[in-house]
Simulated assay, not measured.
Amino acid sequence: MLDELFSIWPHVIAMAGICLTAAFTIWNGGGSYAAPAVTVALAHLLFRWAGGQWYYRRAKRQNPTFWMNFFIISALTSGTAWGASITLLLRGTSPSDRYLILTIACVIIQSATARAFMAPLPLIGQTCILIVQIVGVSLYHGDWIIAPAAILFAGFQLGHMRSLIRFRLRQLQVEAEKDALLQEIARTNEELRLANERLQKTALTDVLTGLFNRRALDRYMEANDPRQNAELLPYSVILFDVDHFKPFNDTYGHQAGDACLAAIGAALRAMPLPPGHMVARYGGEEFVMILPRTDAAAALTLAETIREKLSTLEIPVPEASARITVSLGVSSFGPGSTDTPLRLVRRADTALYRAKQLGRNRVEQEDAAATTIDA
């Protein structure tokens, strides 16, 4: 809006009208004040041009309120300058020339009317200053026709300005309501997106341990099947559970058992795992770790790290703390294998069962002849 208000072209057109009218009055033998009228108009044009250049070069460095106040001053200056030019032209001219001059004044007022919806008060003030000067000089010369005609025209234009302003205000109100509605829709969509994310996270997360649940595990293994993507090989699985968990529950109570599982979940979540690896609660006191791009040696080392870390946990129990141990089974396959992740989990379960048979608190690999790590 300010860009348009500071445009120089309406003033250039008004200047051209003043110059043509001055030339016409001189041609008809009048125009004794034509030169001062053109001088005032030219000085005003230069003032508005300089103000516009200042605005376009520095608008980003000042706030809009500053420039709006500057425009108010400029608009009132324009009304005074154009009024002075018109009144100078009216002096010493014939009655027929006065009607031409009044026409130019009407054009200037019409230009202000067309932009009144952008800055109502400054442009109405500009129009009133111009009209007062025209009416004053007309009455001074005893011209009782131009004065009432100018007043009637001004009244008509002010009414037209009022209609434009009311229309613009309604338009702005509609735009504001539309923007508010769009913001509300955007806010609602964002809330829905966050709610869906929370719901999805809840649906795929085990509430007690904070790890992924069985549903998330199934999705992960389906999406990360090495038969579909050979870059995932070698592929390993670690399956483990808490040793003597039922006696632990019977001794300390189910709340202590829940605290035990929650502590294990927190410890596993805190472990630095490479991107793409997954830890999930497999069921009850069982946990599983899926390790794409991990060979058997790395998986065995990681399994031993898990065993040692979990054995140091202090589990809060009534009036004391307790420690637990875990048994782990590891299974792996390398490039060229056609096994599925689910089959690998089953083989890790076999290794876990062997770890239980051999005394618990140990890591066993799927192959009975493979390396075994004891506590």
Rank of each mutant, 00 (worst) to 15 (best):
R48S: 14
T25M: 12
V38K: 10
L20C: 06
C19Q: 06
A16W: 00
A22S: 06
A14R: 00
L5Y: 04
R48I: 10
V12R: 09
L42I: 14
T21I: 12
T25N: 09
I26M: 12
L2Q: 05
H11A: 11
A34K: 03
L2D: 14
I18N: 01
L42A: 15
W9H: 13
Y33N: 13
H11F: 15
I18S: 07
A23V: 01
L5P: 07
G29H: 07
F24N: 07
N28L: 02
N28I: 02
S7A: 15
V40N: 05
F24L: 15
V40E: 03
N28M: 07
W27C: 07
A22K: 11
V38P: 06
H11W: 13
F47T: 14
A22N: 09
A23R: 02
M15Q: 08
D3I: 14
H44T: 03
A41F: 08
C19R: 12
A35V: 15
I26H: 01
A22G: 14
P36T: 05
N28R: 08
G29Q: 01
V12L: 11
A14E: 05
W9I: 11
A35M: 09
G30E: 06
T25L: 08
L20S: 01
L20K: 11
G30M: 10
A43M: 13
